[in-house]
């Protein structure tokens, strides 16, 4: 990426943005981590999250089983990394990408006329027609993706392991 926001402490101008941005990034890190932890915990036990994945009708049974088990764990791992601030930029980008994948999944369910719960925060599976909340789920995921993108674009923030390791000082 560009050099503008990186470790060149001597040449950095000290404007208002430069003071505020690290705290905004920290807020996004904590916020996105909280979202991911909630999403992971509510997906337990795996039987339920497997069912939520199967409801999308996109994967063969074995793959759905695997995703149902691994997805909450992956969310948990990302949350952990965001909280400690390790590889902040890349984790933010992966988080945003994950949200975009979720949005694509919901759009595909919508396009195929499925009546399912997105299973984003537990739940999942079939719902009555007219009880779907695709719009809300997508809007939510867009907001989460934006948080991830913000972190990826401006990774410099306080309380981050990256700092201790000499990145984004």
């Amino acid at each position: 990426m560009t050099e503008t926001h990186d470790d060149t402490p001597t040449s950095r101008p000290t404007g208002r943005w430069e003071t505020v941005q690290p705290w905004l990034t920290l807020a996004c890190r904590v916020g996105l981590a909280a979202v991911l932890i909630t999403a992971a915990v509510t997906k337990f036990p795996p039987a339920l999250s497997v069912q939520a994945v199967e409801a999308y009708d996109l994967f063969p049974t074995e793959v759905a089983q695997f995703i149902g088990h691994v997805l909450p764990l992956f969310e948990l791992a990302l949350a952990l990394l965001l909280l400690v601030g390790l590889a902040t930029r890349q984790v933010g980008a992966v988080g945003a990408l994950l949200m975009i994948v979720f949005i694509a999944g919901i759009l595909s369910a919508m396009a195929r006329g499925l009546n399912i719960d997105c299973g984003c925060f537990g739940g999942g599976g079939q719902v009555d027609p007219g009880e779907t909340t695709y719009g809300l789920s997508i809007a939510r995921d867009i907001a989460f993706a934006a948080m991830g993108a913000f972190i990826a674009l401006w990774p410099r923030s306080p309380f981050a392991l990256d700092r201790a390791l000499g990145l984004f000082r």
């Binding site: 795996p46 088990h69 990302l78 990394l81 590889a87 990145l167």
Partner: peptide, 26 residues
């Protein structure tokens, strides 16, 4: 180099959490 190390460490954390978690869950 620093970025590579950090990203590598992060990837290791992900693999560890997912791997151990998967073993426990299954």
């Amino acid at each position: 180099n620093r970025t590579l190390i950090v990203v590598g460490a992060a990837a290791a954390v992900v693999l560890l959490v997912v791997g151990i978690g998967y073993a426990v869950l299954t």
